[in-house]
Write a protein that binds this DNA or RNA. Structure first.
Lengths: 211, 211, 211, 211
DNA sequence: CATGAATGAGGGTTCATTCAT
DNA sequence: AATGAATGAACCCTCATTCAT
């Protein structure tokens, strides 16, 4: 009878790995990739340094993995928010709202994607570009549809998507840095939505009930 | 021959310092703050490592100083472009155009401001925030004026300025990454200008001739 | 059922220990002491890392023990081959043959003794010296006897034994590295035997039949 | 006038590099590749750890370089000793003598070649094999010549060269380990020379004056 | 008995910075 | 002014070893 309950052990191990990844995410978001040492992470996690290397191959790999996961989560979440709606106003409002929600409840996620992974690791240049691309693509689809349906005038939807994505990023970053973020969130969503819809030249033939 | 010419010497020194700063800016933009070693910089500048420390107190200080200078240059340039015009459409068009121009002709400058100075140095967080603030303020003034003159509807000009700044950044970053940047520049300026003006709810009572 | 069979258990344990030692020997021979990690050994053995430390106190002790055992085996085997013969030519031929046999059929053993245990562990310096001493002594006895019986001329038998041992080692090491080792083995034995006997000044009054 | 005397500086630097290499050679010979840490070497050399990496790219490269240089030196020295003589007895005597001399006056060199570089570095396997090959070839040339001139009977000169090389190594290693090495050196040379010549079946038609 | 998660000392290496020349 | 040899704190990572289950 060698030993028992590989399942229970496995679960515990997975839980711990996840916990350590959360910790690492926080530390990376706090200090940036370079300033965050492996010792910082394990100290924060309350484990020995060897434990880090038991769970992860190395600092860089973990960071890239974290970036990938986080990017997927962010993009997927916003994508669902957008795709769940049918009209452009609702799509924009819903997408912006979900982006803001993530920023409010998982600030580290947004921070990592928007500022954390920049001068960090060479191999991240590509990943980061891919993430930006995804973000832009997220918006381009509803724009193209709206264009087809002549709800917005003829325009370069690709470039407009970039503008939309950039506007969202900046507003949200500023929101995060302001003290009463939660209170301002609703206003920010409304302002952004209006700005974007107007910017795209959307004319509200049908009454666009806010939210 | 007693030595005179302290002025000439000083000039020479300043010239060399400036040259080294240009070199440093390039290297920082190319590799990022952390990957760029002091040795990289002096090698590129063709001087010895000791020379670096004759002209600059240390790597971080130089970087911060570079950031400051570059931020000033960028903000001043755009500010002049905006303030030189009287109507909102022209202000927006001119500001965007000048931003794009800098991106085209001094890509290192834009790169440093937008991506280079991010995870680099803790003390830069503040500086970076100040720069973003300046950028936003740049736009807010014309917006407030337009609001006063009822050229745009009632809105949170602060937040709109953030959105405008963010939209510009993202579009310009994408422009820089695209192969035929120069050819696309004009289109980008036009698209951005339209998007911003529309987004702000500007109604073109007066015909807005482009540029 | 009260537990009996402490003997059977012990046997099983001994069997497992022996198996693990064989595995360890192989891994050490393959990779060298330092490159061979405890993890390598247990992975090859198909057990967990804790099991290793149940059977052996630590890596170094195991290695030294392995070295000792292997040295004993090698020396004993060759000793028997030599001592089973009565005349110098047969003793040399038999000793060389048995050495070559071990090299052919247990290459890991020879590898461990000749190259594996060298820069490995400080405490092995002594052990290794003792092993070399044993090897030399192995040859010196028959030489002394032959000298007594005036079958070889007056000479420093100690030094000659060293030379004999060294010649054997080098030829055998080269044999192991050559592709067709088995085919060349017979020739190597013959060549070495002739070289040694001639080198010792042995005059073949009695015909030295090969083997 | 930037600075002067790059030549003098260069000379000093080269001298220091050489000195550090000597130190490193000693430390490697003393402790073996793995036990010798870079910190050990710089402590012995009386410099900071950074200085090591100013002069050498890394520990492994230095070691391999040291091995290469040492191998060349050893092989070249013995080759000259052999090639400077015309008859087999003198060639053998001279070769052995020069090998012994190196062992006496540069024990670290011999130690590094014979025991130092074994389990050390993967890339050294090839180098080490090449060195052994060189050593064997050193002897094979005179043997082939002697065979051509029918000074020794028909035999496998390659294998005999191996045996000769091996015999030398072992005797010399034992010589180094004995307390009165210098006093025994002459005897060792004589014994080895006789053993080898006899072993090759050399018949002294011409009187071979010793040494 | 067996397991494997957890530990941490210690090794190799980098790089910003100093200072004698 | 300019040089570049020298420094050493600090980083990432490995791996032998322990111990609760």
């Amino acid at each position: 009878m060698p030993y028992r309950s590989t399942e229970k052990t496995r679960q515990k191990k997975d839980a711990k790995r996840t916990a350590m990844m959360q910790t690492a995410l926080q530390v990376f978001a706090d200090k940036g990739y370079h300033a965050a040492t492996v010792r910082d992470i394990v100290k924060e996690a309350g484990v020995a340094i060897g434990t880090f290397y038991f769970y992860f191959p190395d600092k860089e790999t973990l960071f890239v993995y974290l970036f990938d996961e986080t990017a997927d989560f962010l993009v997927q979440t916003i994508a669902q928010a957008i795709n769940g709606k049918q009209t452009l106003p609702r799509q924009v409002a819903s997408g912006v709202q979900s982006y803001v929600n993530i920023a409010l409840y998982e600030p580290a996620v947004v921070h990592l994607m928007l500022v954390g992974g920049i001068g960090a690791v060479p191999s991240l240049h590509t990943k980061r570009a891919a993430f930006r691309e995804s973000l832009v693509n997220l918006w381009q689809r509803p724009l193209d549809t709206a264009l087809d349906q002549e709800q917005i005038p003829e325009q370069n939807t690709r470039r407009m998507s970039e503008a939309v994505a950039g506007a969202c990023d900046e507003v949200i970053l500023n929101l995060l840095n302001s003290p009463g973020a939660e209170d301002e969130a609703a206003g920010a969503v409304r302002d952004l939505t209006f700005f974007i819809l107007r910017g795209l030249g959307y004319r509200e033939e049908e009454k666009s009930e806010s939210s």
